[in-house]
Amino acid sequence: MARRPGGGSYVTAFISKHALRSATLTLAMLAAGATAASAADKISIMVGGYEKQIYLPAKLAEALGYFKDEGLDVELLNEPAGVDAENEMLAGAVQGVVGFYDHCIDLQAKGKFVESVVQFSQAPGEVELVSSKHPEIKSPADFKGMSLGVTGLGSSTNFLTEYLAVKNGLKLGEFTSVPVGAGNTFIAAMQQDKIQAGMTTEPTITRLLKTGEAKVLIDMRTIEGTKAALGGTYPAASLYMQTEWVEAHKDTAQKLANAFVKTLQFINTHSGAEIAEKMPKDYYVGDKEGYVKALDAGKAMFTADGVMPQGGPETVLTVLSAFKKELQGKQIDLSKTYTTEFVKNAK
């Protein structure tokens, strides 16, 4: 047998070299497998502006440790406009969206099946504010020729704005929807008269009312106000996911439902001040008292159990059908736009 200089055979060296390479490859594969398993356990959820009080359950569940209690590694990503969050989910970049339920109906009309897995609220928590510079706007009938602020084009605030205008006799095209987000960007747009009215949520509402720069035109922060404006209970904030993904990951969907139902129960049994203490301090935008007051006034919008309110989907379909051509004359199976399976099985 040929010998290597310095001792040992070439065959032995060859075997040793390849054994080492094989062992290295095996370790690399095991490491990759561990990484893949870790990645499989991680859930990414896009929130349509997690500093908004309407989407409070997302950040609160994280703060209370309820995701970790369920063995979940949940990454919350912020996206100010719900329509952009929806697109991220459809592209597979995230597994779920905390946004308005109405997208589930809108998407079915486009051939995409998405469902609300946990229904957070039964009222939009939105207010149509009018700039104090425009006292001539006394109802949505006065929107003609106006620029109206919405979070994004195709967003739920856009849907509601168009419905209110059409309901009050206007036609699409007689007013302009301007995407201005929420918070500072919404406020700046109103201050600069880029919008004369707009739809937004807390804490933006309180900030503008406190300075006197805006007045409430239509208030949908309560169930009563919502019924008056939209004709019924209006399920809004939710965790929605692609139906195909939910069916393939029922165990994970159940864990998410467990965490969020516990969060909704926490909201239902604690004061605004107690809830606010769990939230990041910058969410107060320098006015903790106003934040707590708005939370106390509006937290009744949240469901106590995550269950879709009876009759709610029908109201949403009626609202959307009033102005969306894609829905007019189309058969929508509302039973496929939400599920109560997981919230009813929640711990």
Rank of each mutant, 00 (worst) to 15 (best):
M1P: 15
R3W: 13
R3I: 14
P5H: 13
G7Y: 02
G7D: 01
G7T: 06
Y10F: 11
V11H: 05
L20E: 11
S22E: 06
L25G: 02
T26W: 14
M29A: 12
G33Q: 09
G33P: 04
A34K: 09
A37R: 00
E51M: 13
K52W: 05
Y55T: 02
Y55C: 04
L56P: 03
A58C: 06
K59R: 14
K59V: 15
K59D: 09
E62V: 01
A63W: 03
G65I: 07
F67L: 14
L72N: 10
D73L: 08
E75D: 03
E75C: 02
E79P: 00
G82K: 14
M89I: 11
M89D: 07
L90P: 07
Q95E: 13
V97N: 13
C104E: 10
D106W: 02
L107A: 09
K112P: 02
F113W: 00
S116W: 03
S116I: 03
V117Y: 06
V118T: 10
Q119L: 06
Q119R: 07
Q122T: 10
A123P: 12
E126F: 07
V130P: 01
V130R: 02
S131M: 05
S132P: 02
P135E: 11
P140D: 10
G145N: 08
L148W: 08
S156N: 11
N158I: 02
N158E: 08
F159I: 00
F159Q: 02
A165I: 11
K167Y: 01
G169T: 06
S177F: 03
V180F: 13
V180P: 05
G181F: 10
G183R: 10
N184V: 15
D193K: 04
K194W: 14
I195S: 08
A197N: 03
M199S: 02
T201H: 06
T201P: 00
E202T: 04
P203Y: 05
L209K: 01
L209W: 08
L217K: 02
D219I: 03
M220A: 11
R221L: 02
I223G: 05
E224Q: 12
G225W: 09
K227E: 13
A228T: 03
A228G: 10
A229E: 06
L230P: 04
L230W: 06
G231S: 05
G232F: 11
T233S: 09
T233W: 06
Y234D: 04
A237V: 07
L239M: 14
Q242L: 12
W245S: 07
A248K: 15
T252R: 11
Q254V: 09
K255V: 00
L256P: 02
V261M: 12
V261R: 07
F266H: 12
I267N: 13
I267T: 00
T269G: 00
S271H: 04
A273C: 10
E274C: 01
K278V: 08
P280K: 12
Y284W: 13
Y284L: 08
Y291H: 06
Y291W: 13
V292S: 01
A294K: 01
M301I: 10
F302I: 07
T303L: 09
V307D: 11
V307G: 11
G311E: 03
T315E: 08
L317Q: 15
A322K: 15
F323H: 15
K324C: 03
L327R: 12
L327Q: 10
K330Y: 05
K330R: 04
I332F: 14
D333R: 09
L334G: 09
L334Q: 11
S335T: 15
T337K: 01
Y338T: 10
E341R: 01
F342M: 14
N345F: 01
